[in-house]
């Protein structure tokens, strides 16, 4: 990797200040995407600001009808959290399927969603469960957070503090992993929430997206059969050696039906 200056601030303000002062600063949360990127010399930030010792970014807690997960909470903590497992088992199971155990021991929810990898799992949870993202400046609705390929609604230097997931009536996440990287080729979160049915798809497009036709069909009849004939357009879906757009479109249907079946119990 290229040389950079490493910072380990003790407060959110100091982190923001370090970022602001840097020529090209990058935040490091768990580092599980950033460090591989740096090792491959695909990025050359002047400064890396590690949030590890910033207080207030940890912890999983119940707040009313929501589960609030601190930005620096690791995937393994979410997967093991009794609070999460009781309230939103789909979220625990999603976290338990990210990367591998060592990635889950370091990688964080904040790092994952800020990176906005089109094949990451968490975006499906943020959008599919209708979450809101709290930053050091504001609150962003989950539906508005992901704006494109590796793009989010965050402003320059804005730091995610926590993610709040409303507890759904029922939900499930099913993914079809890339056989090599084990990222999602297609991952679908289906949730029956207070604000309606949500179907969010990660891995298939530039960014996580919802499938309105499925949501409508499921609102009337929450069963796999209800969406059996809902076709997903392959236009604008990703293509790579592991999956064509056509195959991805097909998998969206299969994963969605399996998620519905799992959520319906």
């Amino acid at each position: 990797m290229y040389a950079f200056n490493y910072h380990r601030p003790d407060t959110l303000e100091a982190a923001a200040a370090a970022l602001a002062a840097a020529e090209d600063g990058r935040v490091m949360a768990g580092g599980q995407t950033l460090i591989p990127t740096l090792k491959q010399r695909l990025a050359s930030p002047s400064d890396v600001v590690d949030l590890a010792t910033v207080p207030g970014l940890g912890g999983v807690r119940r707040e009313g009808d929501a589960i609030v997960v601190g930005a620096m909470v690791r995937h393994a903590e979410v997967a093991a959290s009794a609070e999460v497992r009781a309230a939103i088992p789909a979220l625990a199971s999603l976290a338990d399927g990210i990367g591998d155990p060592q990635v889950r021991n370091c990688g964080t929810i904040g790092g994952s969603i800020v990176n906005a990898d089109p094949a990451a799992d968490y975006p499906a949870a943020v959008v599919g469960l209708g979450a809101t993202v709290r930053t050091d400046r504001r609150t962003i609705v989950g539906d508005d957070f992901f704006t494109g390929l590796f793009e989010t609604a965050l402003d320059e230097g804005e730091i995610v503090v926590s993610v709040s997931f409303p507890v759904p009536r029922r939900a499930a996440y099913v993914k079809f992993p890339n056989p090599a990287s084990r990222y999602a080729v297609v991952g679908v979160m289906v949730a029956d929430t207070a604000s309606g049915i949500r179907v969010a798809v990660t891995g298939a497009g530039d960014s996580v997206f919802r499938v309105g036709a499925m949501e409508t069909a499921l609102a009337g009849n929450f069963s796999a059969d209800a969406i059996r004939n809902v076709a997903v357009s392959q236009d604008a879906l990703n293509e790579d050696i592991h999956a064509s757009a056509e195959y991805r479109a097909h998998l969206v249907g299969v994963m969605a039906r399996r998620a519905v079946a799992a959520a319906a119990g």
Partner: peptide
């Protein structure tokens, strides 16, 4: 089942890491 080395038409190795080459 898993391992398929792939080049594109220009001779670039598409499966150039464990991210794409399935072990």
């Amino acid at each position: 089942l898993l391992e398929g080395c792939a080049y594109d038409a220009d001779g670039q190795l598409v499966t150039g890491s464990f991210m794409d080459y399935t072990m």
